[in-house]
Design a protein around this nucleic acid. Structure first.
Lengths: 414, 414
DNA sequence: AGTATTTTTTTGAGGCTCGAAAAAAAGCCT
DNA sequence: AGGCTTTTTTTCGAGCCTCAAAAAAATACT
């Protein structure tokens, strides 16, 4: 069942530790790394010498402020941008974007494209994704061999092993094993990630102070999604990407949801639900697409006067509040980031949300629960994919395989 | 942040692996352990020799069926029952029980006592717990020094570090740091565990086939509790023991719950809620204690005729079903064990539960979701505490500290 | 220029795991 | 019975890895 630790794992893991320390800290010195990893100076010295020799790290006499200190100046270690590259693919409603990112995390090329994802047949959708990736890989400026990993992000449900898209609101198609497709086509390891999970990953890199071990990223857009980090780990379901906060039940038998069921949180707080409610359309009406501009206009109207628009946001806040209350009953309160178009209307949502959450057992001390907003989800998703891919590369590069050293010790005496 | 692996950790962890392999497998041979841990025979041999020499394991020419096989017969390794002992304390409504368990997991002494937990003042409640433990420790048959750990289980919410009871339905008192109190009094490391978590731990030991990496244990009793195992790990909240399934919101603003809020799952499915509903008492009425016998009578009545009793169970099933649907939206479906008095009435609950769950996004393929029932929670809780304590001992004994070996190698030549 | 201070590298020692070979402990076969 | 086969367990040498201490390196201070 559980597996013992082999002797050679040790080096591999400690190399991983060093690389990740460098990625997190920017330009730490060896001494700094020794302090954060708890390993001895000699070990760090040996490992970083290897990594530099292998071209993964570089020395950079960085820190000018060090000039003030006494003693031998520290030598900063940095990731070698040319050590590898990764490619991110983000597929969202009617929109496909690709970026190439170097090992240090800088974008070195990108491309975007509009598609009619809702009506495209399977082959065409897959074909467009492959084509845009192929174009980036054929860029003469890019050393193709250096692309070590592809991370694809998509709105919707993916499987828990990050191999396939199981269901997505952007297309009627289901069960597309994008990771396998990309790997087969390009011979580059790939993963298929859930959009909200990537938002959470990105938030942690952007603001590790606030988003450290436990936090929640909620996407308030056409649908309602969630990325959840618990005890420092990205939470996933047992089979799927899980965390389908939007499909927790708010009112049994209530409003019609895009998923076909009734009473989901999303059926009250998704863009289409807010729109439906504001326009006085029946809760039984099929969800319709609402553009971002329309949603912004709706929010403006709601701010101007107390009418059905404001009431629609209030009801959205209520649904989100009770949903969060249930969630907090399970995992305890944690900082929340609201992302997406409707996050820009969070001022309209927050009062009812807080009122609702205060009525739940999970929402004890609801005043101490803090919300942050970020209206633009796409950059977050791409950043998350990039960091995820880079982290994978980190974990593979330091798995050095068996190094064949010339062992010429012919000891003949028994 | 993350910490590197030191060289000496390696042996410690592999010792842990061996001990846990023996605890799981019963009487495995060295070869068997090598297979399950993935370590080499020589390593297993060295480690088990140490463990035997230290009195933690014993050799037992066990397996008679081996007589049929050719070759050198396997030597079974077993836990030495005398290597240590642990003590479990289980505090539930009006009831306190203690057991002493040897290192192999056999109960060697126990004691039980009735108390009026609901009205006892703080000092008295703590005093009774200490007294009953002291009596067991003073048992002349017991080698006190061998008691290596105390695990206390309690109905209610504990903190995520298993140190204190934060809130419990069995007493109006809050925030009692039982773990610290026990440690201070007896000088033995202690933990304070949540009852439902211990149920889950016990289920996994009882039936590792069914309850392996992902499953849910739900307590259907006066209150509704949950123990959750995800990806092989016991799930806890970020601050508290978490997993308060009973206080997820079923109907916003609905029936009055024991926690003081409205509309919690428990306010429809707890014993008091079923009783209240069956008796036609208002949903706003304060929860009352209902005895187990009364609940059994209620179930009998409900089976006999289609009246308010049956309707009460139906409503309980509905609440549990929608609650599970929301839970499954977050974590995906998993096997469920229903534990407690009302688990014996699960036949009355199941139809409405399945109907409700089928109406949720989380309950897709609801037919494949399987339920098992176990009416008696106390034995499970005690077993769970015992295994938890023993596992802790496993993890401590193999942390050998620095063994002072006589290193008489005086190498003088530079 | 010499001293102090801090960082990095080198070196030797001690541990750990592994693979191969040897030893041990049976059953099987003639 | 005695030798052969089979399987398990132990032993042994080799190769790594980490650590602590010492040495070397690089700069500021006096």
């Amino acid at each position: 069942m559980s597996v013992g630790i082999r002797h050679d794992d040790l080096r591999r893991r400690n190399r991983a530790m060093v690389i990740s320390a460098v990625r997190r800290a920017g330009q730490p010195s060896r001494t700094e790394i020794a302090a954060t990893t708890g390993l001895s100076h000699s070990t760090i010295s040996a490992i970083s010498a290897d990594l530099i020799q292998e071209g993964i790290l570089t020395e950079s006499k960085a820190s000018e402020p060090t000039a003030l200190k006494r003693g031998r100046p520290q030598i900063g270690l940095a990731l070698n941008p040319e050590a590898a590259a990764v490619l991110t693919v983000v597929l969202s409603l009617n929109f496909l974007s690709v970026a190439v990112i170097d090992y240090a995390g800088q974008v070195i090329a990108e491309e975007q494209r509009r598609l009619d994802t809702l009506v495209m047949p399977r082959d065409e959708l897959i074909g467009e994704c492959l084509a845009i990736v192929r174009r980036r890989l054929q860029d003469p400026d890019l050393d193709v061999g250096s692309v070590a990993r592809i991370a694809m992000g998509i709105q919707g449900i993916t499987d828990s092993h990050a191999r396939a898209m199981l269901w997505s609101p952007i297309t009627p198609l289901t069960d597309i094993p994008f990771a396998d497709i990309l790997e087969r086509e390009f011979g580059i390891p790939a993963t298929m990630e859930n959009d909200c999970n990537m938002m959470a990953v990105a938030l942690r890199w952007r603001d590790p102070e606030r988003y450290r071990d436990n936090f929640i990223a909620i996407l308030l857009s056409h649908g309602i999604g969630m990325g959840l980090v618990l005890k420092g780990e990205l939470f996933t379901g047992t089979h799927s990407s899980g965390g389908e906060f939007g499909h927790m039940i708010h009112r049994p038998g209530g409003a019609l949801c895009r998923c076909g069921r009734r009473g989901c949180v999303e059926a009250y707080a998704g863009n289409y639900a807010i729109w439906r409610s504001a326009m006085g359309i029946s809760e039984d009406a099929a969800p319709t697409d609402v553009g971002d501009a329309d949603m912004r206009a709706l929010a403006t109207k709601a701010r101007q006067e107390d009418g059905p628009e404001r009431e629609a946001y209030r009801r959205a806040g209520e649904a989100l509040g009770f949903g969060l209350g249930s969630l907090f009953a399970l995992i305890d309160p944690a900082p929340v980031a609201m992302v997406g178009v409707s996050a820009a209307a969070f001022d309209l949502i927050e009062p009812a949300l807080r009122e609702a959450i205060a009525q739940t057992a999970g929402g004890q001390h609801s005043n101490s629960i803090s919300f942050d907003t970020e209206p633009n989800e796409l950059p977050l998703i791409r950043e998350g994919c990039a960091m995820r891919a880079l982290t994978f590369v980190d974990q593979e590069i330091f798995a050095p395989g068996v190094q064949a050293k010339v062992g010429a010790t012919g000891k003949n005496v028994a």
